[in-house]
Nucleic acid binder design. Structure first.
Length: 874
RNA sequence: GCCGACGUAGCCCAAUUGGUAGAGGCAAGCGACUUAAAAUCGCUCAAGUGCGGGUUCGAGUCCCGCCGUCGGCACCA
């Protein structure tokens, strides 16, 4: 197949124009302050989710989104915009490190090699990136600022009144004033527990095979997302980022964004905000009256407190030891051991079957003084709410199942409004019953309000010291440390007393030491702990040896593109003012929650601290749909259905690849690859080529004699202007597939003409240019040389998009559909602006219509101008 | 189980947002060119829109109820 004669010399053309763009820096975007900066031009920032440069190189899924943004960018430049269209590398991460461990090659080497490969592949596709702005998260000049941002997080706290990050100094000052005599330890503890970056002892997902902890998001079904290794729970001291403080804003500020509603919903559900109350249950028989011996539960249904018939603690709950009676100790200990030994997966796997044991202890229900038993069960999660629940088996399915299994009391306290409801367990809203005069007879929302309170009124719980209103999030704080080598080191050290402190900004970047042995230590100590020289500082402090997760670098790369070589700031105020925010962000749905949530969080912190103008980073978001293999299955090495763009380019050229990526179907849709389809667009490009070019006797391509300086016909003019209009509109709305088919239509129309008007054809080249930049530039060059007076010799890339003329679009006569009772009966040709009465008369006079109306009364006549006339008769 | 997307010629997809179901491509067939084939050019073929109801003069499009495919979440109190 590869020996087949090329239908046009794409290989020569494409390399030539790519070199030209490189050398002339055609797509360089100027920043405020640059000599060639034009403040009059509007800006446009189109961003691709930057790739992880894996060893496999690109597959055809990568260029899908990249082609879409490239088309937009090339179009916007022609529309007079100053366009920011950058590319870079999310290059920290596990695969390079795993490779290093297995083959002894330094991850930097592997990474550089992979980047070079990716870059070469991208360049062959002819993307109009401004390569002067390339960023690489593993470059010390880049991660210096990642570390700098971490210091900002470390040195800030969340001020709850303004719901915004503030410098930690402000909190320090307040605290000193309020508690001047506080001990240093207490003071430190207070401050450190409020930083946006803090240390916590948490049950983490420890992955022995990878030798690291993983974020919840990186664990799928109890196994590591990367590598599919088993993951177990283990308490460890870790760096955390206080993203939960931003829970409300991360939900609220989604509103103004132009994102797919599904993605917004996904984020909302992930954040999982729920309003309710903390309720305190005293432990029965506890004489100490110590506050620490109170069980606090979180509930969204405080209106059902009277139906709470037992308490359940997570097996890991801190009060279990205190509560458990001698008689139950054996059972409880065994249960806790079993739960601890289970992986997350095993714990959720048989979620249908509830398990648990009685502790022997009792709690006092604060609303009625009733003594209710305390159980432990692993269906209560230690990481959500308070790790303890009040069980209301009549109105919660999980509690109902548990109570039924263990014979605990089920007490109805909400009556369904709809009497037909005869479920054993009613979880909906209804009317409070069997409770107390306080709420009996009230609707669920009213009863909740009585308990929790409303905006200006304190609720029963708070008045009686039994609880507090509380908002909880499913979202957890972000576990931010990894026990790996190939990541950003923390700009943190520990003094000899075990206190952490930040390194000063002038010590950045903190570079990882060169090491020969990257292997995990097999313990919780990260690989960096083996670099003794590096770890131990002169003043007996030691460096933090954890590294940051891969998400860190990708949290702010879109900012660095705006000002990529600034050594004084991560982004200058001018660059931020001018470029932000991102007008269009295109990438896969796999980042719908994590990356986008994390980036939004960092952006908000930097905004709060006054470093950024905008609240949100990405104005419009589009998810490209996955490209499947020819077999309709997900592309994967094991299935052997992966399509490599290099092969497609070798065979059909980059323009064909680009065009097919867009012609396959709507950008956001999942769709299968088809080499036959590639051939189809390749044939189209060859037709375009031959529209302009013909072979001479020696087989050399030259301008076709049919291309002439003649006036287009009315029909040609019409299709040209239709196409100008449609292609422009379709690019704006990202409907590239239909734009391309319109251009095919035009090509078919002009191909049939023996005399082809050069002015119209060149207009068409402009339309084709964003899609197939190489072939269109080349043809334009040839045509311009032959018609110097008519076609300017500039590159299409840097000249204006053609305008269209409405007058060319309208026909004098239109075909009108004639219906009787909604059924198509005839068509007729009428003047475009014929009055309704005339249309009606003409329609009724039609031979095919007569039989339908002769015997009937005409009830109504519906006329859609320029479309149809419908006669309703019976 | 919950949330979301999608079901239109053999295949990938259009359809001015309620107004002639077809723009484009693939495949198939026929013809022209050719000694022949490929390539090219021209022509042709095909579904009544997943299923069942409803609203309407008129439904692929709106409403209700199902079915199927693909993604995501899944004891979050």
């Amino acid at each position: 197949m590869s020996e087949r004669r090329k239908q046009y010399p794409f290989d020569e053309i494409e390399a030539k124009w790519q070199d030209c763009w490189d050398q002339e820096k055609t797509f360089r975007a100027s920043n405020p302050g640059d000599p060639d900066f034009d403040p009059e031009k509007p800006k446009y920032y189109a961003l691709d989710m930057f790739p992880y440069p894996s060893g496999q190189g690109l597959h055809v899924g990568h260029p899908e989104g990249y082609t879409a943004t490239d088309i937009i960018c090339r179009y916007k430049r022609k529309e007079g915009f100053n366009v920011l269209h950058p590319m870079g590398w999310d290059a920290f991460g596990l695969p390079a490190e795993q490779y290093a461990i297995e083959h002894g090659v330094h991850p930097r080497e592997t990474t550089e090699k992979n980047i070079a490969h990716f870059k070469a592949q991208l360049k062959r596709i002819g993307f109009s990136y401004d390569w002067d702005r390339e960023v690489n998260t593993t470059d010390p000049g880049y991660y210096r600022w990642t570390q700098w941002i971490f210091l900002k997080l470390y040195n800030s706290y969340f001020e709850t009144q303004s719901k915004a990050a503030r410098p930690i100094e402000e909190l320090i000052e307040k605290r000193r004033k309020a508690f001047p005599d506080e001990s240093k330890e207490d003071f430190n503890q207070y401050i450190n527990s409020r930083r946006l970056a803090y240390i916590d002892e948490v049950a983490v997902n420890w992955c022995p095979a990878l030798g690291t902890v993983l974020a919840n998001e990186e664990v799928v079904q109890g196994r590591s997302e990367r590598g599919d290794h088993p993951v177990e729970r283990k308490p460890m001291r870790q760096w955390m980022l206080r993203i939960t403080a931003y829970g409300d804003r991360l939900i609220e500020e989604l509103e103004d964004l132009d994102w797919p509603s599904g993605i917004k919903k996904l984020q909302q559900n992930w954040i999982g905000r729920s309003e309710g109350a903390d309720v305190h249950f005293a432990i029965a028989g506890d004489t100490t009256k110590d506050e620490a011996d109170t069980i606090t539960v979180f509930t969204t249904r405080p209106d059902t407190l009277f139906g709470a018939t037992y308490i359940v603690l997570a097996p890991e709950h801190g009060l279990v030891d205190h509560i458990t009676t001698g008689a139950q100790l054996g059972e409880v200990t065994a249960y806790r051991a079993a739960a601890a030994g289970k992986s997350e997966r095993e714990r959720t796997e048989n979620s249908k079957e509830k398990s648990g044991v009685f502790t022997g202890g009792y709690a006092i229900n604060p609303v009625n003084g009733e003594k209710i038993p305390i159980w432990i069960a692993d269906y209560v999660l230690t990481s959500y709410g308070t790790g303890a629940i009040m069980a209301v088996p009549a109105h919660d399915e999980r509690d109902h199942e548990f109570a039924s299994k263990f014979g605990l009391e089920i007490r109805q306290v909400v009556a369904p409004v709809d009497q037909d409801h005869n479920h054993a367990c009613f979880t909906g809203e209804g009317t409070a019953i069997n409770s107390s005069p306080l709420i009996d007879g009230l609707s669920t929302p009213e009863a909740k309000a009585v308990m929790i309170g409303t905006g200006n009124e304190t609720g029963w719980l708070e008045k009686n010291g039994a609880g507090m209103p509380r908002v909880n999030f499913k979202l957890r704080d972000w576990l931010f440390s990894r026990q790996r080598y190939w990541g950003e080191p923390f700009p943190i050290a520990w003094d000899k007393d075990g206190n952490h402190y930040p390194l000063s900004e002038d010590q950045l970047p903190v570079e990882a030491p060169a090491m020969d042995d990257f292997k995990p230590t097999g313990t919780a100590d990260p690989p960096l702990s083996k670099a003794h020289q590096w770890v131990n500082l002169e003043d007996q402090s030691t460096r933090e040896t954890n590294t940051m997760p891969q998400w860190a670098g990708s949290c702010w790369y879109y900012l660095r593109y705006c000002d990529p070589v600034n050594n004084d700031a991560f982004i200058s105020r001018e660059a931020d003012d001018y470029w932000m925010n991102v007008d269009l962000y295109v990438g896969g749905t796999e980042h719908a929650v994590l990356h986008l949530l994390y980036a939004r969080f960092w952006h908000k912190v930097l905004h709060d601290l006054g470093y950024l103008k905008t609240r949100e980073p990405f104005h419009k978001l589009v998810n490209q749909g996955m490209i499947l293999g020819e077999d309709g299955q997900k592309m994967s090495k094991s299935r052997g259905n992966v399509v490599n763009p290099d092969e497609v380019i070798n065979e059909y050229g980059a323009d064909s690849l680009r065009l097919y990526e867009m012609f396959m179907g709507p950008l956001e849709q999942v769709k299968p690859w088809s080499m036959k389809g590639v051939e189809g667009v390749y044939r189209f490009l060859a037709r375009v080529w031959r529209l302009f070019m013909e072979e001479d006797q020696e087989g050399k391509w030259q301008l076709s004699k049919k291309v002439q300086d003649v006036e287009p016909t009315k029909k040609q003019l019409r299709i040209l202007h239709e196409t100008i209009k449609k292609v422009g509109e379709d690019i704006e709305s990202l409907d590239f597939n239909t734009a391309i088919s319109q251009m095919m239509k035009l090509t078919n129309e002009f191909t049939s003409a023996d005399s082809r008007p050069v002015s119209s054809l060149v207009d068409f080249l402009h339309l084709l240019n964003p899609f197939a930049p190489h072939i269109s530039e080349e043809i334009n060059r040839v045509v311009a040389a032959a018609f110097p007076g008519i076609v300017p010799g500039h590159q299409l890339a840097t000249t204006s998009w053609p305008g269209f003329n409405e007058d060319c679009l309208v026909d004098d006569e239109v075909e009108i559909v004639v219906q009787v009772n909604g059924k198509l009966r005839d068509k007729m040709l009428v003047a475009k602006d014929a009055p309704d009465a005339e249309l009606e008369a003409a329609a009724k006079g039609l031979e095919k219509i007569q039989p339908f109306i002769e015997q009937a009364t005409v009830r109504k006549v519906i006329i859609v101008p320029g479309k149809l006339i419908n006669i309703v008769a019976n």
